[in-house]
């Protein structure tokens, strides 16, 4: 089994450890999970799913981060 896997995040390829949870990726990216909308392989994920969702090799993610103010 490989020691790493590749994912594509907002069009940029990234290497991460197998069994990486989405929430851990978001934290690594310095993002507050509650303020990010995630589409993973074409599916919009519910916020509750972030903590358990495991990324798989080849996953394609689109992240939209929100900042406060309105």
């Amino acid at each position: 089994m490989s020691h790493s896997m590749k994912i594509v995040c907002n069009g940029v390829e990234r290497v991460c450890a197998p069994q990486t949870k989405l929430v851990d990726l978001l934290c690594d990216l310095g993002l507050e999970p509650d303020t990010v909308v995630v589409e993973c392989d074409g599916v919009i994920l519910r916020r509750e799913a972030y903590d358990t969702h495991l990324l798989t090799d080849g996953s394609v993610l689109e992240l939209i981060r929100f900042v406060g103010g309105g």
Partner: peptide, 10 residues
């Protein structure tokens, strides 16, 4: 609130 912004888009 950015949390509600994200929630609403979801």
């Amino acid at each position: 609130d950015p949390v509600m912004k994200a929630e609403a888009l979801r």
